[in-house]
Amino acid sequence: MSLWHDLNQGIIKENPVLRLMIGLCPVLAVSNSALNALGMSVAVAFVLTCSNLVIAAIRKLVPDQIRIPIFIIIISTFVTISDYIMQAFTPELYAALGVFVPLIVVNCIILGRAEAFAYRNPVLNSTLDGIGMSLGFGLALVSIGVIREMLGAGSVFGLTLFNPAAAATIMILPPGAFITIAFLMAGLNKLENKVQ
């Protein structure tokens, strides 16, 4: 019961992007196409799940005063590993995500979950929390990516739906990200009010 709770908490109820509103910087930057959004979600999921797992496993060895630097070392190690792996095996994706891969280090979702959850909970719960938060992040990011790419470039995952000349370019520029996020948040709040 508690394990299930840890997993699904991050997906809707505490969705990092749409409810907690953390980690918005990469969300704004890479959600201009569905494919970029998906690639970023996968990279964040890898780092978040691994760092939650490792931090939970070593939480009793870490002195309170230096926990933040140790979290950052662990997170940046996983980010660098995923950076190398992407460069070696998926160079096209790496070229598209570019500068945003190293920036996962400072993604507040990851440090936030390390501090708020993994440091205080057992390995299994923390891993599930990492997976759940990653799913929530991915769900939000890909939804935003699909909406922006569709309205702003007339395509989804690179497949053309209608003539790009008729698309609203603003949607793939930064304001489009804010507009989309605002509508998704409003929709989610409305949905929650209904459920209650």
Partner: peptide, 10 residues
């Protein structure tokens, strides 16, 4: 020292 151990492993 603890911090150093983590750095070395990483």
């Amino acid at each position: 020292l603890i911090l150093m151990v983590f750095c070395v492993i990483s």
